[in-house]
Design a protein around this nucleic acid. Sequence first.
DNA 1: GTGCTAGTTCAAGTCGGCTTGATGTCAAGG
DNA 2: CCTTGACATCAAGCCGACTTGAACTAGCAC
Lengths: 140, 140
Amino acid sequence: MIEIPELSIGEVARESGKAASAIRYYEEIGLLPEPVRVSGRRRYPRDVVRTLAVIETAQRAGLTLDEIRLLLRASVDDVAATDRLREVAERKLPELVALIERAELVRGWLEDAARCVCPTLDDCPLFEPARLPEREHLLS
Amino acid sequence: MIEIPELSIGEVARESGKAASAIRYYEEIGLLPEPVRVSGRRRYPRDVVRTLAVIETAQRAGLTLDEIRLLLRASVDDVAATDRLREVAERKLPELVALIERAELVRGWLEDAARCVCPTLDDCPLFEPARLPEREHLLS
DNA sequence: GTGCTAGTTCAAGTCGGCTTGATGTCAAGG
DNA sequence: CCTTGACATCAAGCCGACTTGAACTAGCAC
C-alpha cells in the first residue's frame, strides 16, 4: 500500500504556528512544493514543519520569501543548485552583517533607555552624535 | 533678523540619502516636525540630517516608524517622555535580541553556504535539524 | 516675457506578505 | 439523512512605507 503523508493542513498549521492561509500562500508562490492530495485535501509529510521553521527563521533574519525560495529550491534541485545558493549567500551576507550591527547599536540605545532616569532627553546621553553610525553610503 | 534654516528639502535629501518624498511623508505622519517655510518651501535646520540617520538606523534594526516616532517625540516632549521611551524600550528589547539571534543563525548558514562544495544539498550539513532553532513559542 | 529648475499638493499606485469573505465540497458522527 | 467542521478555490482587501503622476507655483537666467 502507498504511504499517505500524515499531516492535514490544520495539523501543520498547529505544529508550525503558521496560519493555514499562509501555508497555502507559500505553496502558491512556489515556496513549498505541492503536497499530495487525498480527495482534494492536502496531506503533508512531517518534515514540512521543519521547512516552515527554516522559512520563519530566515524571514526574521530579513530574507525575503523570494530569497528563501532560492535557498530552499537549492535543496531539492539538481546541479547549479549550490551555485544559486552560494550566489544568494554572497549577495545577502553583507546585508545581514550590516543588519546585525544596526540591531546591536539600537539594542544599546534601548538598553540605556530602559534604565534611563534623565529628567528630559536633552540631558540624556542617548542621542549624542557620537552614538550614531557614520554615513558612508558605501553600498546602495 | 531672523535666522532662516539653511537646507532645502533637496539638500536634505542629498545629505541624508532619503528621497524628498520620503521626507515629506515622515512629516505627514508626524515623524519629523513641520519645518519653517519660505514662500511655501520647506527650510530645514542642519540637524534634521542627523535625525534622519537615527530614523534609518532604528528602522534597519526593525523598529516601525510608529515606534521610532515614540522615541523621537520623547526627545522634544516634556515629562512622561522618558516613561514612554522606557516603555518602548522594554517592549522592543526582547524582539531585538531575538532578531539578532536569528540573524546570526542565518549568517552562519549563509557563510557555510558561501563556501559549500557539496554536490547536492542532501549531502550538505546545512539543513540538519540541529541547526534549526527550537520552537518554543514563548512569545506571541 | 519665456523657460528652467526645484519646489508644492493631493490622490492613487506599488510591493511584500498575508488575511478575509463568499461560496462550495466532502467524510464522519449522531 | 442531516449537520458539522475542516477543508477547498478565488478575488479582494489590508498594512506599512513609500513612490508616482498630474497639475500648479515661485524664483532666477536670459
